[in-house]
Design a protein around this nucleic acid. Sequence first.
DNA 1: TTTAGCACTCTCCCACCAAGACTGCTAACT
DNA 2: AGTTAGCAGTCTTGGTGGGAGAGTGCTAAA
Lengths: 343, 343
Amino acid sequence: MLKGLTPRREAVLSIIVSEYIVTALPVASETIFRSYQLGVSPATIRNDMAFLEEAGYIARPHTSAGSVPLDKGYRHYVESLTNEAELPLEEQYRIRKLFREVEEEFERWLKLAATIAARLVRNAALVTLPKPRQCRFKHLELVALQEFAALMVLVLSEAILKRQLLSFEESMTQERLTNIADKLNAAYSGLASSEILVKKLELASEEEQVTEAVIDIMVTEDKLEYEQPHLEGLRLMLGQPEFAQKDKMLSIMELMETKDWLSSALAQRSSEVGVQVVIGEENRDETLRDLSLIFSSYGIPGQIDGTIGVIGPTRMDYRRAISTVGYMSEVLSGLVAGVCRGD
Amino acid sequence: MLKGLTPRREAVLSIIVSEYIVTALPVASETIFRSYQLGVSPATIRNDMAFLEEAGYIARPHTSAGSVPLDKGYRHYVESLTNEAELPLEEQYRIRKLFREVEEEFERWLKLAATIAARLVRNAALVTLPKPRQCRFKHLELVALQEFAALMVLVLSEAILKRQLLSFEESMTQERLTNIADKLNAAYSGLASSEILVKKLELASEEEQVTEAVIDIMVTEDKLEYEQPHLEGLRLMLGQPEFAQKDKMLSIMELMETKDWLSSALAQRSSEVGVQVVIGEENRDETLRDLSLIFSSYGIPGQIDGTIGVIGPTRMDYRRAISTVGYMSEVLSGLVAGVCRGD
DNA sequence: TTTAGCACTCTCCCACCAAGACTGCTAACT
DNA sequence: AGTTAGCAGTCTTGGTGGGAGAGTGCTAAA
């Protein structure tokens, strides 16, 4: 029994995982025997299953039931996946086509990416807006709206756009506003918030006010760990059998709608590159312990990045999820680079 | 039997509706007798119930069960609600406080309004962005991003902000772009898309290109019936007992996530003012036949408007929903007016 | 180490029954 | 005529029990 994870036992584990992934039903030794050519009898397979159970890879719902993978089993399965996991070319082509069909707007693209990923893995998908490590001042515009109020439009590096209403003590003409904007544009162009802060200029009180608003926005933007992620395809995930009971379903919905679970979930996002997989209990957040997360960052390394990923029950098609997330992050990276280059 | 809807029968109906709204259980004659002082015995109430059933106001799940209201019953109940339905002052105060606490950004306000409405009625709430009847050109800005590409930022009336990437055939400096923007700003300020279209100017090809992009955006904006509404609190609605079965739940989720059901639902939005109630079968859209919609437009009549409403099963606390939607639309109208005035 | 055979366990489903909840009807009452 | 008490009848709900089926664990032999 203590002979360790022999190749055949690994094979059995692998079969159990992939079988359970599609059926969501405990896998019986008989099933393994019938569907796969292992060259041994069900009884032998049962012995291997006993070992796998002892070793914590699998478990049984009850004494006389087939086996279901545990987190450790999934983990082993994922590690054993060759990295050759790639989306079929045909699928890649179809995806690219969808992107070409949609309006040229980055947020649409993100949404589309999430929708596609969600559909492919039949689970929920999420994306965050790409965020520069440190944003830089690019351009400022002030538009008179009313006598005492103006709209400030602030363009930051990587085409981030922010707007804010400003109200002034005294009446401001458009000319006056334009002058202020011109002056600040000349002075601040290309600077980060900290650099603006140290740069002392002769400023009229309105200019001071505008500058403060600008710094405020930039600092907020820099501090922002992640934007509230955009979630797509929650219904697909909730359609999975693990959420058959209503309360499970509702607690998941509540989780998704309210808590900023993503930050805690992605806190474990090491600086590693490539697709990362967090399985069940590996999540720090207790409430996520039944879920798995497959995600990858996209963007331009070191400069600007966002995250795309899928989330679903631990019983998830990891191979498909990994290849999907991998490919989608590639696509998004390409789009980010495109926008920054201005294609 | 054919004596018509006597006052007592109306009272019985009203009791059935309000009782069913809170319990979600068929209402028995005995219950009505015990909880309300009607001065008659259960047997008499049963006779009245028989009439109400005959007349189509109520129905029974099975032969020997209490009664549940039908759409016609809800409709009668709603009509009979005095318009004095107002949110308690204390609640109003609390809501205003929440608005003061949140960041000054219109979209946040909208989201907050929906969240509050959803919580108050324990169902889903929706808001659309306020949309001007016809938007007008306010200001244009071009920011060089790369040699052949620029970001166009377009400010339209009512502080609507649009941005788009433009790519040019030839290399464009920031000076060049600023010149173009200045020229077009001077020419188009305050105009609607149609007016820009007829205004013939001497335009260089890049100016022409920018103008076309502007018109394109404005026309799209004008045509937009409703923005994709923002939905909040879906989980509250799905927590209601009518969605106990998983398939019901999923079909609702699918409806909400995919179809633009709102436009068809709000198509019946007559030009009436005030809070409107659409109950079950009154919905044109078949898929909404189990749901009720309570909504109201907000904004500045004739100039700019959006919609706020709640959606839930026909068994809904109409009184509360109506007062909530009414009040929230007031609040939002105030905020819209504030933004336009520039408070 | 592998295998066949078999007893054992646990779930799942269905049928059945008893209790309880309400009604509808009938006949008497005001 | 409208109202009421009493009661039979109907339908739901929850609990119980048992049989079928699925799948294992164990034992003993190959």
